[in-house]
């Protein structure tokens, strides 16, 4: 066993030059990173065990009381339920539609027409959320909205898209599927185009129909990409905020109140009622959901590779 000093002396000069370089450039970046990411993340866990208010930090240690109280809190339960329904429905519909689109666009409609269609479906991904949500707000308008007018053509009665909580949740789902489907489609398209065409040709020679090829070749080979798309869509859906804030105002015009979602509830507890410890424990619940989803993804990906 050599002393640390002796070991340090045995390191050649060139290595010291590199260490100095690393220290010089990496230290400021990691300092910034630790201050802006790791410190607040750790602090969120710490705060969740305290009664912690804006002007009275670390007022009282509560243990798990915040967590227990949240489970009895009607607002939190409503937010959890809404967000979960939103996440599941948005993910299922947007991934299903994206799969269908990608399958058709990768195999049948190609060339300029395919490019044009890709562009049309991808356009909503790129426009910022607030302006397009305002566009949808007009489409969903009860009296003169296009959607109710279109439903009228089929003899369906006008729907209160922006005043009934359930319909408003549906409206947020429609808007979010519309915004997400192009992104999912592009990722799945890349995955499908990576599947060697020879598999399909061989299957076609053996008389497999298009549907059989999709079921037996595309789907299994695409499973890891599909899982990735499902997980990122679910995670981003659990963090939904902007579109709800802009679209779902309540009768008094309070933004986001009509469809309570988790991030909105964290926002309200933390920044309107200044119950910051309580808001932090709510954030930890959200974190646990997201971590579970991430672990599921890693599990399955490892499973499918071995």
């Amino acid at each position: 066993m050599r002393s640390p000093l002796a070991r340090a002396r045995s390191v050649p000069h060139r290595t010291w030059v590199r260490y100095r370089f690393v220290a010089l450039f990496l230290t400021p970046i990691m300092a910034l990173y630790i201050y802006l990411r790791i410190l607040p993340t750790g602090q969120a866990f710490l705060m969740s065990f305290y009664k912690w208010e804006l002007i009275k930090p670390a007022e009282k240690f509560l243990g798990l009381d915040n967590y227990a109280n949240l489970l009895k809190d009607d607002n939190f339960r409503q937010a959890f339920l809404n967000t979960t329904i939103f996440a599941i429905v948005t993910t299922i519909i947007s991934v299903f539609l994206a799969l269908m689109l990608a399958a058709v666009l990768s195999r049948y409609v190609r060339g300029r027409l395919g490019g044009l269609l890709e562009l049309l479906y991808f356009a909503p991904v790129l426009v910022p959320m607030v302006p397009v949500t305002l566009g949808w707000r007009e489409i969903f308008n009860y009296n003169h909205g296009v959607l109710n007018a279109a439903l009228g053509v089929f003899g369906i009665a006008k729907q209160p898209w922006l005043s009934d909580p359930t319909m408003a949740l549906a409206a947020v789902v429609i808007l979010s599927v519309w915004k997400q489907v192009g992104y999912n489609m592009i990722i799945l398209l890349v995955g499908m185009r990576a599947i060697p065409i020879i598999y399909h040709e061989a299957a076609a020679v053996d008389g497999a129909s298009a549907w059989q090829q999709f079921r037996k070749i595309t789907m299994p080979l695409l499973a890891p990409v599909t899982l990735f798309v499902v997980v990122i869509t679910t995670i981003s859906a659990y963090n939904v905020f902007t579109q709800v804030y802009v679209l779902a105002s309540d009768v008094q015009g309070a933004p986001g109140k009509l469809v309570r979602v988790l991030v909105y509830d964290i926002f309200e507890n933390g920044f309107r009622f200044f119950k910051m410890g309580y808001a932090a424990s709510e954030a930890v619940y959200l974190f646990l959901i997201i971590m579970a989803l991430t672990i599921i993804q890693f599990r399955f990906l490892r499973g499918s590779q071995s």
């Binding site: 993340t41 969120a44 932090a280 974190f287 997201i290």
Partner: peptide, 9 residues
Amino acid sequence: VPFEIYMVP
């Protein structure tokens, strides 16, 4: 860890 988790601290 999404931004929403640590925005309060």
